[in-house]
Design a protein around this nucleic acid. Structure first.
Lengths: 369, 369
DNA sequence: TTGTACGCGTTATCAA
DNA sequence: TTGATAACGCGTACAA
C-alpha cells in the first residue's frame, strides 16, 4: 500500500502538493495535478485513514443513531438498505461507523464519547420530535444530519429526506384517475416529520378536489393497530373507498381488515402506502406504494455530513424525488398499455418503469430550514 | 481530552509505561499500574484511536458482512440486535466498522479494500457453504470470525455460535413432556451450519425415543414455503402431531397451515421454532422457541476477532448456551406452577425465567473445528 | 505555484 | 521493572 511520500517521489513533487491534490485545499497547477493523480492511480494510493485523523484531530468515525430498536426496527424495514448506503459512502471517504444505541440510557457512555470527540459527526435516522439525542448533540456542537426525516424540534438541523409531499400528491392523482372518490388517510401518532408531511399533503390534495378530509392516527406502525383502525373506518356509514396508509406494514393490516369485511381490493377498496418494501411487493394483491430509496438517502446523508465536517460548509438540506409504484391494490381501471404476460402485478406498472440498480437520478436541492 | 503524555507526567512515569499498562504487552509493577490507572481515570484518558492505528499499522476498523440483503434480511430479524452487539464491543475496544455489502460483485471494490488493508478483520454473520467471501479473505490472510453459524467449507475459520444442538435437545424433551409423539422437522435448503445442526440433532433425539424421523426442507426461509411444506406434511395419512421449524418466520407459516386445516394449536398440533423474535412472541398463539442472543453473539464475536488481530491468538471457537422459551404453541399439559394472572402466555413460562438485560451467563468454550 | 519542516498520540526497538 | 527515542502517514504554517 503506497504512501503519500512514494507518490510524491514518483511524481516529482513534494508531499505537500500531493496532499493538496487530494484535499483540494489550495490550487494546484492542472498539469501537476494530472501527473500526481496518474501516479496515485498507478500506485493504488489512498490517504491513510489513521494518519489523516491524527493530523487533523478527527476520529474518522461517524456515529449512527436509529431511534427505535428491536421490534419497531423490524416494522420499518428500510433500515438495512439505508445502512448499506451510509456505509458505502463512508467507506468511500475513509470513514468508519459506530452505532449509538437506540436507548441512550443504556450502558453506552454517550456523554463521554462526545467529550472524547469519538465521532466527527452523527447521522440520525427518522428522528422523533421528542429526541433527547438531538439537543444533546446540538449543545456539544457535534455536526449532525438527519436522514429520512426532519427534526421538528429545531429548524437548524440539516436533513436529507424523500419528497413525501410530492409522492403523496402523485398518489392522490393516481387514486383519482382510478376513480376513487373518498380516500382516507391512516397515519401514526409518532412525532416524525413523515407523518406531518403526509397528513398536510393529504388534507391539501383532498380539499383541492373538494372532498372531505378523513385522517385517523394509529398508536404505532404495527399491523395490529392498522387493522383495528381500518375496521373502524370501514364500518362507518359512509365508508372510504380507498385507504392510504403511512407505512406499508400498516397497509397489510388494512388489507386484512378488507378481507375480514369481504371487501374486494381494488374494486371495493383501494389500498396504498409509503415505503416500497417486500411487504408491499409480496402481499395479495401487491400494494401500490410511494417508493423510498434508502440506499441513496444514506449516501447523500453521509456526503452532506462530511462536507459540514471537513469543509465547515453551511448546513444545506437535500430532498430526493419520490416515485409512485402503482400495483394491483389500486388499479381498477384497465390501462390499454398493460399487456397480458406480466406475472400478476408483481412488477411495477408501466407508469413507473423499474429503474436500474444504480443510484438513480441525482438529488435535488431545497432551501435550508 | 487527555493524551498519554499528560497521564505519564501526572503519574510520574514514562509514556512507555502508560502504554504498557493499557496494552498489557509487558508486565508493569502492580503499584505503578494502579497509580497510572488512577490518573488515567481522573483525566478521563482513553488511547487515541487514530494514533494507535498509525503506530501499529492497523486501521482500527472491522468489516461486517451479512450474506443476505433486502428481503432475506427482513426474514431474519435478529440482524439489528447482532449489529448492536458488534458495534458496542467494537466501540469498547476503540474500533469502528464498515459494512461489506451482501452482493460482493456490486460497486464495492472489495479486493482493493483488502489490499489496502482497510479492515483489520472481518466478521461474517450466518455464512453459507458457498460463500465466495470466506475463501477470498482466507487467501488474503484477513483475520476472520463467523457469528451465528460456522463456515462449513473449511474448519479453520473460527466461529461464535449458539448451542443449537443443546437447545433443540431441550425442545425435544419439552415436546415429549407435553405428550407429543410424532414430531417433524421443517428445515431449509440453505447451506448453513444451523440447518445441519438441527437436522442432525433432531434425528438423534427422535431415534433415541424410538420414533420415526421426518424432515422436510423448504427452499428458503419464507412463510410461504413453510406454509406449503406444512400443508403437505399435515395432509399425510400419519400426520405429525408437532412441527419444529428452523426459523420462527417459518413457524408462522406452519401456524397458518394449521388454521387452514382447522387443527387446533397446541392441542392437535404443537409448533415450535428457533429464533425468539417478535414474530414468535406476537403470533397467535405465541410460539415456543429456542432463544438466540444476537447481542451477546455480536459482542463475543468482536472480542474473539480482536484477540486474534491484536494478540495473534490462536483461533478458538465460542459456543453460547441455548435457552428454551416455552409458550402456548406447545403447552398442552397444565403445569401446576402456572398461576392464573399472567397475560395469556405472552411471557416465557416458569421453566425459563426471563433473564435480566445483562449479557447473561458467560460463553462456554468448545474445541476448535 | 510549490516546498520545508514540524506536530498529531501512540507503539516498538533498544538500552538500562 | 522501566525509559528514551525513532518511526507511523498525513496536514499545514510558514517560507520561497
Amino acid at each position: 500500500m503506497a504512501s503519500i511520500e512514494e507518490v510524491a517521489r514518483e511524481a516529482g513533487v513534494s508531499i505537500t502538493t500531493v496532499s493538496h491534490v487530494f484535499s483540494e485545499k489550495r490550487p494546484v497547477a492542472v498539469a501537476t495535478r494530472r501527473r500526481v493523480l496518474a501516479v496515485a492511480d498507478r500506485l493504488n494510493y489512498r490517504p491513510h485513514r489513521a494518519a489523516r485523523g491524527l493530523a487533523t484531530g478527527r476520529t474518522m468515525t461517524i456515529g449512527l443513531h436509529f431511534p427505535f430498536e428491536g421490534d419497531p426496527l423490524l416494522l420499518n424495514p428500510f433500515f438495512p438498505e439505508l445502512l448499506e448506503g451510509l456505509s458505502a459512502a463512508a467507506a468511500e471517504a475513509g470513514y468508519g461507523f459506530l452505532l449509538i444505541p437506540a436507548s441512550l440510557e443504556a450502558k453506552f457512555p454517550l456523554r463521554q464519547a462526545l467529550n472524547e470527540g469519538r465521532f466527527d459527526g452523527v447521522i440520525i435516522a427518522d428522528p422523533t420530535e421528542d429526541s433527547t439525542l438531538v439537543p444533546l448533540l446540538l449543545r456539544h456542537r457535534v455536526p449532525l444530519v438527519t436522514a429520512g426525516g426532519r427534526y421538528l424540534g429545531s429548524p437548524q438541523v440539516p436533513w436529507v429526506d424523500n419528497d413525501h409531499r410530492g409522492g403523496l400528491a402523485q398518489l392522490m392523482a393516481h387514486l383519482e384517475e382510478q376513480g376513487y372518490k373518498r380516500p382516507a388517510l391512516l397515519s401514526t401518532k409518532d412525532g416524525i416529520s413523515y407523518a406531518r408531511d403526509i397528513e398536510e399533503t393529504f388534507e391539501k390534495e383532498v380539499r383541492a378536489r373538494g372532498g372531505e378530509v378523513t385522517i385517523v392516527r394509529a398508536d404505532d406502525q404495527s399491523e395490529e393497530q392498522a387493522f383495528r383502525e381500518a375496521l373502524r373506518l370501514l364500518n362507518q356509514p359512509r365508508r372510504p373507498d380507498a385507504i392510504v396508509a403511512g407505512i406499508d406494514r400498516q397497509a397489510v393490516g388494512v388489507l386484512r381488515a378488507a378481507r375480514t369485511l369481504s371487501l374486494r381490493v381494488p374494486r371495493d377498496l383501494g389500498i396504498a402506502s409509503g415505503g416500497d418494501t417486500v411487504l408491499a411487493r409480496h402481499s395479495h394483491p401487491p400494494l401500490t406504494t410511494m417508493r423510498q430509496r434508502p440506499r441513496v438517502l444514506g449516501e447523500v446523508a453521509v456526503r452532506l455530513l462530511l462536507t459540514i465536517v471537513e469543509r465547515s460548509a453551511p448546513p444545506e438540506n437535500r430532498i430526493l424525488p419520490a416515485e409512485l409504484v402503482p400495483r394491483a391494490s389500486t388499479r381498477r381501471v384497465r390501462s390499454p398499455r398493460a399487456k397480458a404476460r406480466r406475472p400478476a402485478d408483481a412488477a411495477p406498472g408501466p407508469q413507473a418503469p423499474q429503474p436500474g440498480p444504480g443510484p438513480g437520478p441525482g438529488p435535488g436541492r431545497a432551501s435550508p430550514g
